[in-house]
């Protein structure tokens, strides 16, 4: 799968991701396709500067990288955001806030994990107070790997996410709904009694698991 003449480094992984997405969602109706197209054309980002990735996220809005030309723009509150960017390692203390922010976002909503730390803990793989795999706690739609990935890589990630949305792939929020028991159990394992309150996922009536 690794062809140097087509791509280089993280771009190849990005392409792999995009390739797998290409053949889903052909069954969408015209209106749904249109809506999906609008959705991918306008992504409001709640940039959660948890770790060192935050420094790579800011230049995205500046004149040099100009993410606004893709319709990507910052949102101030989780209520208005479509994409949650987790930029790097996630301390357990921060995880609680991230979960609450994610649950306050309105569907369809997407999560981008930025940097290796969100994938396997990265250089914090043996740290006592960070989580290792973000995917255990929140449904991640797109990973951008690297330590740290450059802003261009993040833009690649956004573009890949846009393609995924345009194809009509369901957002990770669906996965979160379906496997809420599993996610909440994982969250409880690291947060203990310090869980965010349950009224932010009030659609969940599965009992006292969470």
């Amino acid at each position: 799968m690794y062809h140097h003449d087509h791509c280089e480094g993280f771009q190849c992984e990005q392409q792999q991701l995009e390739a797998t997405l290409a053949h889903s969602g052909g069954e969408l109706g015209a209106l749904d396709r249109l809506i999906a197209w609008f959705r991918q054309r306008s992504l409001f980002v709640l940039a959660y500067g948890t770790g060192c990735g935050a420094i790579e996220m800011r230049p995205l809005m500046t004149s040099r990288f100009d993410a606004e030309r893709f319709g990507i723009i910052g949102a101030a509150t989780p209520r208005q955001a479509d994409v949650l960017v987790i930029s790097g390692y996630l301390a357990i203390k921060t995880l609680k806030r991230v979960i609450r922010s994610y649950e306050q976002m309105q569907e369809p909503k997407y999560v981008i994990g930025l940097g290796s730390c969100t994938i396997n803990g990265g250089m914090y793989w043996d740290s006592y107070n960070t989580i290792k795999q973000l995917d255990h706690y929140l449904p991640v739609d797109m990973y951008v790997n690297g330590c740290m990935p450059r802003p261009e890589a993040l833009i690649e990630g956004f573009v890949a996410l846009q393609k995924q949305i345009a194809n009509g792939a369901p957002s990770g929020a669906m996965r979160y709904r379906e496997n809420i028991d599993w996610y909440k159990a994982n969250q409880r394992r690291v947060l203990g009694d310090n869980m965010p309150p349950d009224y932010t996922y009030d659609w969940y009536h599965a009992g006292d698991v969470a």
Partner: peptide
């Protein structure tokens, strides 16, 4: 479901 379900900078 709760009047405390507010955007409050991630805090509760």
């Amino acid at each position: 479901t709760s009047s405390y379900d507010l955007s409050f900078c991630g805090e509760v």
